[in-house]
Structure formats: structure tokens, C-alpha cells
């Protein structure tokens, strides 16, 4: 670990001003990912700006949406009465992430910013284009069981590890971003990037910006939602594949539907084409199977993760079936 300066910001303006002063500064909130990255030598900021004192922990019902502050802990969001009632899918996804101890520390903003868990990224003796652009991708010809089947490039096949983001992508969430001279909003599904030729960039947050929170529109899915997470053990494991599914049913007709996959791409993988295919049709097993098959038609796997194509399709069937049966 390299020595670094530790500063505490009392306001968002101050935090942004401190950030602007140093190219190699980093915000720290829960620290559940950044501290590991620093211990491993993957990340070595000169300056850590602690933002825990910023007033960004609020969870509130606004006009047409729910606002969640960037510093609300994963546990606080998952267990909040408003979230459990209005956004049960988000609550489910959060509670399937990490472990209870981590959820107590990890924040919403940090969850958006968390980096891949690819083993080659964390071992600084290995090649990794995300950590060290131009050094190659260790996973491409290496151990890639946990890696992407959608949207990857020859430069990077890593996946985004979040569960929360998969639910937020399905729920059409918007990320609220603070800038030195104001705010901007970006759809969550546009927040994270595909690796392309710049795998070192996980997302579209600019160097002088801060996440203030997320806004999740109120919806009509009620209880017809499911977050299915398939993993190697029942808790404290990253998804092999996860599915966020939300349905608005009119009798048996699918009036509205949202689907997103986790553990399959460099970002939450929203299935808009499948949604369009399902919208307006009668819910039936053959249709769901057809939708699942269409969802994975474009998937491309590697040596150890071919199973993910089958697993993703099966998980979509399972999640939609369970969502339709929730009451």
C-alpha cells in the first residue's frame, strides 16, 4: 500500500472542489471495494476524499419517482419500508448481494462504481487491459467461467458484479450526477459502458463529477417481480447469471414487462428486444421459452462459460414464471 492523503468533505461543493484539485484523487464512502483494490495494489490514489458526511442518505417519495441518496447503505435501502412496498425488486436484488456485513457498509453510489471481480484484474502480476491498458486480457484464453457472454470485446470479457444495478436497469432508474456547476441525469442503462477499446473505463461518470443519487420511477408491476440469482452457494457469491424480471399483467396478458440480466456483461444487460417481443401477448410457457431463446441468440461464450448461455435462458424462464406467480 502506498501512502495517501485522507481528507473529509463536509459538503458536495467541497467534495467536488477537492476532487478538482488532484487528478489522482478518489472519493471513499463504504470502502468495501476500494480498500481491497488499494491493498492489492490495483488502485493507488494519492488522495482519499471521505464523503460520508455529505447529506446524501435520504430515501424519499417524490413526484412520480422514489429518490435514493448515493450514500444510503445497501442494507438501509433494502429494508426501507418505501422500497419494500414500491420497489420490491430492488429490495430483493440488494438482499441477494454480498453479505450482511458488506451491505451495512456499502452505499448505493459505491455499488454503481464497484469494479469487476475478474481475478486477472485483481492480480497485478497478470495481464489486464482494464487495470493496465495494452497489457492484454488474461481471461480471454484463461479461466473465464465467470465472464461475459454479451457485449464483450477482444480487450476485455469481464462482467459488472452488481445485483442492485441489474434491478435498477430493469426499473428504468436514472442516475443523478453532481457537477461543479450543476447537475445532470443519465439513464442507469447508459451509465455503465461496454469495454470496446477502452475497458479501463467502467462508466460514463466524468472525472469532475459525483453521484448524488438515483431516481426510480414509480411503476405498476406490484408484486409481479422476481430477482433470481444463480450462484455457487446460497450467500456471499457473485452471480453466475441473475435475472431481474417485472411484469404488469392484465389477466393473462402481458401489458408491460422489464427484463435485465446480471453476471453476463460489462454492464447490466437490459433485454429490450425481448420486452418488445413479450409486450401485449398472452403469458404462456411456450411464449416464455421462445422469449428466453431469443434473449440469448446473440450470446457468444468462451472456453469455461458456455453454460451461461443455457443458464441465462433457463433463468429467464424461471424468473418470469416466478414473477407471474407472485402475489
Amino acid at each position: 500500500m502506498i501512502n495517501f492523503q485522507y481528507l473529509r468533505a463536509g459538503s458536495t461543493e467541497k467534495a467536488l472542489a477537492l476532487l478538482a484539485k488532484d487528478k489522482n484523487a478518489s472519493f471513499i464512502a463504504g470502502g468495501t471495494n476500494l480498500v481491497d483494490l488499494m491493498k492489492k495494489g490495483v488502485s493507488s490514489p494519492d488522495k482519499l476524499i471521505d464523503i460520508n458526511k455529505l447529506p446524501l442518505k435520504d430515501i424519499s417519495l417524490e413526484e412520480g419517482h422514489i429518490h435514493i441518496g448515493a450514500l444510503a447503505s445497501n442494507a438501509a435501502v433494502a429494508d426501507h419500508a418505501l422500497i419494500r412496498e414500491k420497489l420490491p425488486l430492488l429490495s430483493m436484488a440488494l438482499n441477494k448481494g454480498a453479505s450482511a456485513q458488506l451491505r451495512n457498509m456499502a452505499t448505493v453510489g459505491g455499488n454503481l462504481m464497484q469494479r469487476t471481480r475478474c481475478g486477472y484484474f485483481y492480480d497485478i502480476t497478470m495481464p489486464c487491459n482494464k487495470r493496465k491498458p495494452g497489457s492484454g486480457c488474461g481471461a480471454l484464453e484463461g479461466y473465464n467461467r465467470m465472464h461475459a457472454i454479451f457485449g464483450h470485446s477482444e480487450n476485455c470479457i469481464a462482467v459488472h458484479p452488481s445485483d442492485m444495478c441489474v434491478a435498477l436497469a430493469a426499473l428504468d432508474a436514472v442516475v443523478v450526477i453532481g457537477q461543479p456547476n450543476g447537475e445532470r441525469r443519465i439513464a442507469l442503462s447508459e451509465f455503465h459502458r461496454l469495454p470496446g477499446k477502452t475497458p479501463q473505463l467502467d462508466n460514463n461518470l466524468k472525472a469532475n463529477e459525483i453521484i448524488l443519487g438515483v431516481e426510480v420511477p414509480l411503476n405498476t408491476y406490484g408484486r409481479h417481480v422476481q430477482y433470481l440469482k444463480v450462484r455457487d452457494r446460497s450467500s456471499y457469491a457473485f452471480a453466475l447469471v441473475s435475472v431481474a424480471a417485472a411484469l404488469e399483467l392484465d389477466g393473462n396478458r402481458i401489458r408491460e414487462v422489464r427484463l435485465a440480466l446480471g453476471g453476463v456483461a460489462h454492464k447490466p444487460w437490459r433485454l429490450t428486444a425481448t420486452e418488445a417481443f413479450l409486450r401485449g401477448r398472452e403469458f404462456d410457457p411456450a411464449l416464455i421459452r421462445e422469449a428466453a431463446n431469443r434473449s440469448v441468440a446473440e450470446a457468444r461464450a468462451f472456453k469455461h462459460n458456455k453454460f451461461k448461455i443455457t443458464l441465462a435462458a433457463e433463468s429467464i424462464v424461471q424468473a418470469l414464471s416466478e414473477a407471474s406467480q407472485q402475489s
Partner: peptide, 10 residues
């Protein structure tokens, strides 16, 4: 995190 021993929930 990646070498999986059973957790209580298992």
C-alpha cells in the same frame, strides 16, 4: 469471496 466454502445458508 471466490474460493467458496459453505455458508450458513447452505
Amino acid at each position: 469471496g471466490d474460493y467458496h466454502v459453505p455458508v450458513n445458508a447452505d
